[in-house]
Design a protein around this nucleic acid. Structure first.
Length: 486
RNA sequence: GGAGACUUCGCCUAGUCUGGUCUAUGGCGCCGCACUGCUAAUGCGGUUGGGGUCUUAAAGCCCCUCCCGGGUUCGAAUCCCGGAGUCUCCGCCA
C-alpha cells in the first residue's frame, strides 16, 4: 500500500526525480507512474508554456556558448574543474547541433505534409478526385524524428541545467578561504564572562528546545513567552522597514510545485535538501519552500513584465524548511541551524542595466536593518565556490557571535543575472523594439531572525544574565530588558 | 468530495454542433502614419509567444502555438481520451 497522497514524508528524490546523467540514453528523467503522467518533455520541471526547446532549455545563453565558448569556459572554471567544463560544453554543443539538424528535418517534413493536405482540399473543392498520398509511412517517419528530438532536447536540458551560473568578473575562484571581508560595522562588545545564546535563552525562558524536539523531532525548537514575542517583534520590525524601502509585501504558499524549485535553480542540485510532499503520480510534485526566494521568483514564471514597472520590488515572510541532512556542526546549537526557521526575503526583478545599483541598494538596506538593531557585523564578498551556484555574485552580511568568536550569516544578497529568469521564463519587452529579453533577478535576506535572535542575546547580554532589548524593538515588546523573571 | 458550464493571439469576443475557404472574426487598449493652428475627432496601417534558417544587422522565408498532453484523419480551434485551471450548484469542514 502506498502512503496516501498528501502525507508529508522525507523522501530521497534520487530514485525518480533526478534527471538522467549526461550522455544517458534515457529520453527523460521522469518516467513517472500513474495516469496523466509527465508532459511532453517528460520532465517534472518542464515548462508549462514553452515547448520545443524554448527559453527554458537554456540556463546559460546558448548564443553565448556558440559565439564565445572561451569566455563561458573561463568563467565556469572558477567553479568547476576545467576538464569537466570542457566535457560538459562539448556535450552541450554536440546536442545543440543535433537538435537543430532534427528541427530542420522535421520542419521540412511538416511543410510537405501541409502542402499535400491543402492540395487535397483544393482538389475536392474543385470536384476532382483527390490524390491520396501514402500517409502511413510518412507519419511514422515524422513521429520517429519527433521522439528523437524529444530525446535530444531532454538530454540538452539536463546537461544545461547542471551547469552553474557564470561568476561575475570580480568574483574570485576558490572556496570559503577566498571570501573577502569588504566592510565592518561597529566593534565587538567587550563581555567579561560570555554566556552563549542557548544558556541565555534557557535562563530567560525564551526558547524551549526539549518540547520543540518532542513536537518536530531533532532540529526543531519552540519559541516561548518573551522569546516568541521577541521573534515576532523582529519580524514585524523587518516587515515595516521593507515596506518603507518600497518593497511590496507578499505572503505566498509554503508548498510549491516542483517547477518553482527548478526555476530558482534549487533543483536539480538541491532536490534532496528540501522536504517533498509524497504524491504517487504526476509531474506536479510539491515541496516545502527552503526560502521565500523560490516563491517570489516562481510567482512571476512565464510572464512578460511591463518595463515601466521595473525594478519590481517584492518581499515575503515565510518560514524556511530545510532538511539540513549534511550533519550538524557542534557550534551551531540553539536556533543557529534547524529544519524550520523564519526569514524575511527581499527580491527585485530589474532591467540588466539596473542590476548593479539594485545589488548595492539591497545590501545597504539589509545592513541598515542590522545597524538599527545595533549589532556589530561585517560584509563579505563570497568567492565563486562558496556562493550559491545560481548566482553571479553574492555578498554576505555576517553578525558577530561572541560565544563562537565568529561571524555568522544573517543575510545573503545575490545577483543572479538572467540565470533564474531564463529558467523561469521571465522577460520584458525592449522599449521601442518588439524583442523580449530576460530580466535580471536579485534576492536577499532581510533578515534571518533565527540568527539575529542569538546575536541579540549574546551581544546585548549583561553581567547579571539579563539582556538589553534593542531600542527599535522596545515599543513592540513593552520592555527594555529581558530578565529571568519575565 | 459530487454534478454541470467554461478556457480562443494584452483585455473582451466570433468561430466548435455540421473538420478543409481559420494563414482565426470584431471591439477596446497600445504603437506608427496622415489630416487638423494643442495631448480632441476621423482615416489608414501595425500589434500572441516560441523555435529554425539566412544575414554584420534588419527584412524575408519555414515550423510550432486557439489551456496542457495524447489519439483519430490526407487534414483538428472544431471530433475522441487524459490532465490542469476558472465559475455555478450541492456536500463536508477549521
Amino acid at each position: 500500500m502506498p502512503p496516501p497522497a498528501g502525507r508529508l514524508v522525507i523522501r530521497s528524490g534520487r530514485e525518480y526525480h533526478r534527471p538522467a546523467p549526461a550522455g544517458s540514453t534515457e529520453s527523460s528523467p521522469a518516467p513517472l507512474p500513474g495516469p496523466g503522467a509527465a508532459g511532453r518533455d517528460g520532465s517534472i520541471w518542464g515548462s508549462t508554456r514553452l515547448p520545443d526547446g524554448g527559453v527554458r532549455s537554456s540556463m546559460l545563453d546558448m548564443e553565448l556558448i556558440r559565439k564565445d565558448r572561451e569566455a563561458v569556459a573561463t568563467a565556469l572554471a572558477k567553479r568547476l574543474d576545467p576538464a569537466e567544463v570542457n566535457r560538459a560544453l562539448d556535450e552541450i554543443q554536440r546536442l545543440d547541433q543535433e537538435r537543430r539538424a532534427l528541427i530542420g528535418e522535421i520542419d521540412a517534413d511538416r511543410q510537405r505534409r501541409k502542402a499535400e493536405a491543402r492540395a487535397y482540399a483544393e482538389a475536392k473543392r474543385a470536384g476532382r478526385e483527390p490524390e491520396v498520398v501514402a500517409p502511413e509511412a510518412g507519419r511514422k517517419q515524422l513521429s520517429e524524428l519527433e521522439s528523437e528530438l524529444d530525446d535530444v532536447q531532454g538530454r540538452l536540458r539536463t546537461a544545461m541545467s547542471e551547469l552553474p551560473n557564470l561568476p561575475a568578473d570580480d568574483v574570485v575562484a576558490g572556496g570559503k578561504e577566498a571570501n573577502r571581508v569588504v566592510k565592518t560595522f561597529g566593534t565587538a562588545p567587550v563581555i567579561e564572562k560570555v554566556r552563549d545564546h542557548v544558556e541565555l535563552s534557557r535562563m530567560l525562558g525564551l526558547v524551549d528546545h526539549e518540547r520543540g524536539v518532542k513536537l518536530g523531532g531533532s532540529g526543531f525548537w519552540m519559541y516561548t513567552g518573551m522569546g516568541a514575542r521577541l521573534e515576532w517583534a523582529l519580524l514585524n520590525f523587518l516587515i515595516d522597514e521593507n515596506v518603507k524601502a518600497g518593497y511590496e509585501f507578499l505572503l505566498p504558499p509554503h508548498l510549491l510545485l516542483d517547477t518553482a524549485g527548478f526555476a530558482a535553480g534549487q533543483f536539480p542540485k538541491f532536490y534532496d535538501d528540501v522536504y517533498h510532499l509524497d504524491r504517487e503520480s504526476g509531474p506536479r510534485g510539491q515541496f516545502l519552500l527552503p526560502t521565500s526566494e523560490t516563491a517570489i521568483l516562481g510567482a512571476y514564471q512565464d510572464e512578460i513584465l511591463d518595463t515601466t514597472t521595473l525594478p519590481l520590488k517584492r518581499f515575503a515572510y515565510t518560514p524556511c524548511y530545510r532538511r539540513e541532512a549534511a550533519g550538524s556542526h557542534s557550534d551551531e546549537r540553539g536556533t543557529v541551524r534547524g529544519h524550520q526557521f523564519n526569514k524575511v526575503e527581499i527580491f527585485q526583478f530589474t532591467l540588466p542595466e539596473q542590476a548593479d545599483a539594485a545589488l548595492e541598494e539591497m545590501v545597504t538596506h539589509a545592513e541598515s536593518l542590522v545597524e538599527k538593531l545595533g549589532l556589530h557585523y561585517q560584509r563579505s564578498l563570497l568567492s565563486a565556490g562558496d556562493a550559491s551556484a545560481s548566482m553571479r555574485k553574492t555578498l554576505d552580511i555576517e553578525v558577530w557571535m561572541p560565544s563562537m568568536d565568529k561571524y555568522k550569516e544573517v543575510s545573503s544578497v545575490s545577483w543572479a543575472g538572467d540565470y533564474q529568469a531564463r529558467r523561469a521564463a521571465i522577460r520584458y519587452r525592449e522599449p521601442g523594439g518588439k524583442q523580449t529579453r530576460f530580466v535580471h533577478t536579485l534576492n536577499g535576506s532581510s533578515l534571518a531572525t533565527s540568527r539575529l535572535f542569538p546575536a541579540i542575546l549574546e551581544q546585548f547580554q549583561q553581567p547579571d544574565g539579563s539582556v538589553l532589548v534593542p531600542e527599535v524593538l522596545r515599543d513592540r515588546l513593552g520592555v527594555d530588558r529581558l530578565t529571568p523573571g519575565r
